[in-house]
Design a protein around this nucleic acid. Structure first.
Length: 425
RNA sequence: GAGCCUGUAGCUCAACGGUAGAGCACUUGACUGUGGAUCAAGGGGUUGUGGGUUCGAGACCCAUCAGGCUCCCCA
């Protein structure tokens, strides 16, 4: 007890119940992706540190990546994100891939962060990217993929919202306010923090990064202007496209959405649960037109988003939308009577499986009450017994555990009888 | 990196500074070839760890470890 070895901090253990939820998320993500013609792919789980160092800040890589030296002395890291691997793989086959390219992926990622609600050090992430198109309609498609997922898991527009903004729009506004390009990243960060900071402190911070009081005043007006998007040709087209794609009810404009990432160049969006206890983003994404060129490929416009499994998992559970866990891995148990008759049990089980049925065989001779209790705990529907009496009479005892009724059927008719009973519910 | 909270049976939790308990789960039996319900019995603990205060510590103090939550950060 004292020396019990616990799971590594921030990792997650998936008991079958949790596995069911993870697979539910995976299945719906796959269905949404495939509905739009995206192809599944994946990259390595371990990458060299340089892949991320090139794009992300050194600070970020040192502090938040699981990095270690392998036996050959190379510095490697457990992947903290997928986009750099995506960019490299696309650049490597740029000539043969068919563009516009639609790829999706669902796999594990690691980030060395402080675990708390909605955030662990090990998580799964759904990534969806559309490479080689730069239209607002392409951006709208990605949002539609996300909405298709939200809808399919049962999340309504009343409780889920995708908030959209556009960096081009913000840049135009900054231009009008006389904020120079080199200052704009700081201003984006400023906007990103507004909801988290005390208003007075936020204004002090704004002045600190070099804005004039007049600029701050106009910036504040800008950030509550819900119709600002109408001045953006891209966003106007985007919202028309969302309307045509029947997902407009899930989406709203919000000038406060900026995304922390440096590489976004146009549309940015984040999905939130409006009514739940988790105030973290469910998903986030945007347009990143320069990234592929930045990592050494040909310039290619791109747009994508990612959704972690942790936050959405909590939301689905809180909303009562997580699938009911069915403890029964198979509808049929074949009991094992004793040492002398266990081969009959195995033969019967095998026959049923050959007929395409899912069958659990009790793996050792045991008292029947124990075996029936086992069946009950697993919510197994039918228990089949083939002991000395049955063998002597050439029959099999089939007990329907749902009704408690037991019948004896001739050995040769077992498959048919079992099928009939299972179809009867 | 900072702060708050929590560590007692397999699980969820009690116990005024005074003999460590309950519920659930588990095992066995009532019921030796048939599950759920009921009843009975039983197994289970260095109270996270190390010090200290006290006649006496699960409780109070210090340290430490672990977990949870929040801030920071968020590819």
């Amino acid at each position: 007890m004292a020396s019990k070895i616990l799971p590594v901090k921030g990792t997650r253990e998936f008991y079958p119940e949790q596995m069911a939820l993870r697979n539910f998320i995976y299945e719906n993500a796959r269905a949404a992706s495939q509905a739009f013609g995206y192809q599944e792919w994946d990259g390595p789980f371990i990458e060299s540190l340089e892949l991320y160092a090139a794009k992300s800040g050194e600070e970020l890589v040192k502090k938040q990546a699981f990095t270690f030296t392998d036996r050959g002395g190379d510095l490697v890291t457990l992947r903290p994100e997928l986009t750099p691997s995506l960019a490299r793989m696309i650049a490597a086959r740029q000539g043969e891939l068919v563009f516009p390219l639609r790829w999706w992926s669902f796999g594990p990622f690691w980030r060395y962060e402080q675990p708390q609600k909605g955030r662990s050090r090990e998580f799964f992430q759904w990534n969806v990217d559309l490479i080689g198109a730069n239209s607002p309609e392409a951006d709208a498609e990605l949002i539609a993929v996300a909405v298709t997922f939200l809808r399919s898991v049962g999340l309504t527009p009343q409780r889920t919202r995708i908030l959209v903004n556009d960096r081009r729009l913000m840049n135009a506004q900054f231009e009008a306010l006389g904020i120079p390009p080199e200052q704009r990243m700081d201003v984006l960060t400023l906007i990103d923090r507004r909801s988290k900071m005390d208003p007075a402190k936020w204004e002090a911070y704004a002045l600190e990064i070099g804005l004039t009081p007049d600029q701050v005043k106009h910036l504040k007006e800008l950030l509550i202007d819900e119709s600002l998007w109408k001045t953006s040709p891209e966003l106007t087209r985007l919202f028309d496209a969302l309307e045509a794609l029947s997902v407009r009810d899930y989406v709203a404009f919000d000038p406060n959405i900026t995304r922390g990432l440096l590489y976004y160049t146009g549309t940015v969006f984040e999905g939130f649960d409006v009514s739940g206890s988790v105030q973290r983003a469910i998903l986030g994404g945007g347009r990143y037109d320069n990234l592929l060129a930045d990592v050494g490929g040909q310039p290619l416009p791109a747009c994508g988003f990612a959704m972690g499994d942790v936050v959405i998992g909590i939301i689905l559970q809180e909303a009562g939308l997580a699938p009911a866990f069915i403890p029964s891995p198979a509808p049929i148990l074949v009991t094992m009577f004793d040492d002398d008759h266990c081969l009959h049990t195995l033969r019967l089980s095998s026959e049923l499986r050959t007929a395409g049925l899912k069958v659990i065989t009790y793996p050792e001779p045991a008292r029947l009450p124990k075996q029936f209790k086992f069946a009950d705990r697993l919510k197994i529907q039918l228990a089949l017994t083939i002991g000395p009496d049955e063998i002597a009479q050439g029959v099999v005892a089939i007990k329907d555990l749902r009704s408690g009724e037991q019948t004896h059927v001739p050995r040769a008719e077992v498959v048919h009888a079992v099928r009939t009973l299972l179809n009867r519910s």
